[in-house]
């Protein structure tokens, strides 16, 4: 160990092992996965995101939803509780993420797993109210209010049909309405698009599953 080069080459070689296994291998194999065709309607699995959902991923990233929510249903060899809890019909696999800009896998579940939240909660209005004030639809929620993604404005003529239907303490003052900003709408479009409920060769969905 007298010479720098000896030490450096040793370090380099040893370090290369994990780099090859966990960086190069994923980059070359997982990074080249392709969608599979959807036999029913000529589309593909995983389905593509619409423009709003694509933009919604940025909001998901910058608001730090990943601090509290994961997006992965685990393999049944490790635990069955993710599927049992109704967080997904089948375990998530690498191919499920290939439409995402960032894989929001997450490491903590202070809130539920969201990989199939679009299946579980298909109602955009619910999501908007939930984001505006989580406790309004979920008593005692510790999820923060994302009210800064909304505008409170004076009603001009007809109330907007986008206005949230809020009651009680959350309701704005008489003559005012709460409307979502583009960011809120994009985020909700993204949440609704979160669904790993289609079959893939490596992750079939059982026939009796409520997949649609």
């Amino acid at each position: 160990m007298h010479r720098l080069t000896t030490l450096l080459s040793g370090i380099f070689l040893v370090f290369l092992t994990s780099w090859l296994g966990l960086v190069a291998y994923p980059a070359l194999h997982l990074g080249r996965l392709t969608p599979v065709p959807d036999p029913d309607n000529g589309g593909s699995f995983p389905p593509t995101y619409g423009g709003q959902a694509i933009a919604g991923q940025r909001v998901y990233a910058t608001e730090g939803c990943i601090s509290c929510h994961s997006q992965q249903v685990r393999q049944s060899s490790v635990t069955t509780s993710d599927v049992d809890r109704g967080w997904g019909l089948r375990p998530s696999v690498a191919r499920d993420y290939l439409r995402d800009s960032t894989a929001f896998l997450g490491s903590r579940r202070l809130g539920q797993d969201l990989s199939n939240v679009g299946v579980r909660r298909p109602d955009a209005k619910w999501h908007l109210i939930h984001l505006y004030h989580p406790s309004a639809v979920c008593e005692g929620s510790v999820m923060p209010c994302f009210s800064h993604l909304f505008l409170i404005r004076k009603i001009q003529g007809q109330p907007s049909d986008e206005a949230l239907n809020l009651t009680g303490d959350d309701a704005p003052k008489e003559g005012y309405e709460v409307v979502p900003t583009a960011e809120a709408k994009n985020l909700v479009a993204y949440l609704l698009a979160l669904r790993h409920d289609y079959p893939l060769p490596e992750a079939p969905v059982k026939k009796n599953g409520a997949a649609k």
């Binding site: 994990s18 960086v23 994923p26 997982l30 990074g31 690498a94 290939l98 995402d100 960032t102 894989a103």
Partner: peptide
């Protein structure tokens, strides 16, 4: 992961690494 993100299906292991 940040400068020139690779296809997301490969990101998980890199992030953990």
């Amino acid at each position: 992961l940040v400068w020139k993100p690779i296809q997301a299906s490969a990101q998980g292991p890199i992030q953990s690494w």
